[in-house]
């Protein structure tokens, strides 16, 4: 093995890393925003409101992310209607196609995490809100959502790492993210093992940084709890 290629191409790997980070941050933020209403609809007592998010979550959690990316990128562009619509300037860019696929995907998982967290809040707290005369909106804003945020943190940190790992799939639709850059470099140097290992090391460093950040935030957010931890359903 010859690791001098890694040194030579390291700046380009870093370029790819920057693209990967943009993909992850944008998808996580957008996905989180969409996830909240989905989670709230999912726990609605009304059957037909509940059934939409159910189908949405079912589809995005039940199919591979790779299929979802290809559906957005190659599937949608097959239709003239799409190509002539106002959406085309966005859909023609692989970067935005990846963002769309990742956002939809992560929002389905995040919605389930939110739902688990909201449902994990002891019923006593809900009752207490009612007793002091809070409206539903007040109850969610002041008590349930902040509480859920604390409960949600470990699972949410996990989801961000999964998104980071999933972002490698962007390389399949011409995006030069970390993995895409690695594959492009290998196309010149024919040294798959060295370059892939280097890329792997960069992913590891990023996920460790994410883990460390979440440990800190968790400590702060849940500091009033002492050392109590509440279990949130695993993602599946």
């Amino acid at each position: 093995m010859d690791f001098s290629v890694v040194v030579e191409y390291f700046p380009r790997l870093l370029e790819g890393t920057w693209v990967s980070l943009q993909l992850v941050v944008l998808s996580i933020v957008l996905g989180g925003i969409i996830a909240l209403p989905i989670a709230l609809a999912r726990i609605s007592p009304v059957l037909w409101i509940r059934s939409f998010p159910f189908a949405y979550i079912f589809f995005f959690r039940g199919t591979p992310l790779l299929v979802q990316i290809f559906l957005v990128y190659y599937g949608a562009s097959q239709f003239e209607v799409v190509r002539e619509s106002f959406l085309w300037p966005i859909l023609r860019e692989p970067f935005w196609c990846a963002i769309i696929a990742f956002t939809l995907n992560t929002s389905a998982y995040t919605a389930e995490i939110f739902r688990g967290a909201i449902q994990a809040i002891p019923p006593g707290e809900v009752e207490a809100c009612k007793v002091v005369g809070m409206s539903k909106a007040q109850m969610y804003r002041r008590v349930l959502l902040p509480r859920a945020f604390g409960i949600v943190l470990p699972a949410y940190g996990n989801e961000i790492i999964l998104m980071l790992k999933g972002s490698a799939l962007a390389s399949t639709i011409t995006i030069l993210d970390l993995t895409g850059m690695a594959r492009t470099i290998i196309a010149r140097t024919y040294t798959p093992i060295e370059i892939f290992l280097a890329a792997g090391a960069i992913y590891l460093v990023i996920s460790m940084v994410i883990i460390a950040i979440f440990r800190q935030v968790e400590k702060r957010q849940n500091r009033y709890l002492g050392s109590v931890s509440i279990k949130v359903p695993d993602k599946g």
């Binding site: 190659y74 562009s77 097959q78 085309w88 023609r92």
Partner: peptide, 11 residues
């Protein structure tokens, strides 16, 4: 094949 797909789609 994917190059052709994207040429046809206008990307």
């Amino acid at each position: 094949d994917n190059v052709y797909l994207d040429l046809v789609s206008g990307r």
